[in-house]
Design a protein around this nucleic acid. Structure first.
Lengths: 141, 141
DNA sequence: CTATTATTGATAATCATTATCAGTTTCCTA
DNA sequence: TAGGAAACTGATAATGATTATCAATAATAG
């Protein structure tokens, strides 16, 4: 939580009411993957006049200083989640039935990364998604 | 190559001039990841009047019978590539410098998948991307 | 307190993709 | 082989998410 404030200060980023509201929304929804539209509606509960342009701008800004993580889950729109510490090695499981996204921690990819780096690449990040049926949807198929 | 024709027949899929052109484009560009727009322009070299709606329709149809593979690389648009045999276990390395996408074969994910399945999930597919600097871009940074 | 600068919301613009629809082609069957 | 049902096409309009524009407002440094 501290480290978020540090990141904000480090990037001479003016903390306004709307930005605080958006940050609050993201912190209230730790672990969830919200679309810009979802953030807009939730933020309007705290600040009714907030506009969608502000939401997009703020989310992108927060992603650029690594307070948020911005990903596209093959559905044609971006989703945002709060960057936790230890967030580096986390993967997503997307349920093909209900669409829910859950996370798993793991660190098995280092072997693969070493393989790639031995070919001269410098790896910055990775992104691993599993498409699956969750226990419930599997049962109801 | 045969298996493509089989897939087409199996899905009572009418093979027209435009579809042949699009398939040709994809086969000429084996291993590349083309956007719909790129396919359109390349297909127009073979058939000048082909329309973009046809390209989208055909690409999606080919993806649905697993002749093509449709993915989104975090840039807001879909890309298509020919499904090779043994395509199942292949991952993408996206260069953050030049944007080139290369592939690697591997099979280390089965361990992870077993872990997830032991929790009751049924895994259908996965998608692993590495964001990196390729040897050349790394050198010129 | 005031000038500079960043931020905001409304709106229009953009970009990729999808839907619509009338005209055309293909295929099946009589 | 003709004729009709069904699939396919291209042009165009519509959609949905995101980005750009711009005048008005708010925050900050001096």
């Amino acid at each position: 939580m501290n480290s978020i404030k540090e990141k904000l200060k480090d990037s001479n980023y003016r903390i306004t009411g709307q930005r605080a509201a958006i940050l609050e929304v993201m912190m209230d929804n730790r672990g969830k993957h919200l679309s810009a539209e979802e953030v807009l509606y939730k933020a309007r509960e705290k600040m009714p006049n907030i506009g969608m342009a502000t939401v997009y701008r703020t989310l992108d800004k927060l992603a650029s200083i690594e307070v948020l993580y911005k990903t596209m889950f093959d559905e044609g729109r971006y989703r945002y989640e709060l960057c936790d510490e230890g967030m580096h090695q986390h993967h997503h499981i997307i349920c093909l039935g209900c669409g829910n996204i859950t996370e798993m921690e793991d660190d098995l990819l280092t072997i693969l990364e070493q393989k790639i780096e031995s070919k001269g690449y410098e790896i910055i990040d990775h992104d691993l998604k599993f498409y699956a049926y969750c226990p419930e949807c599997r049962y109801n198929k």
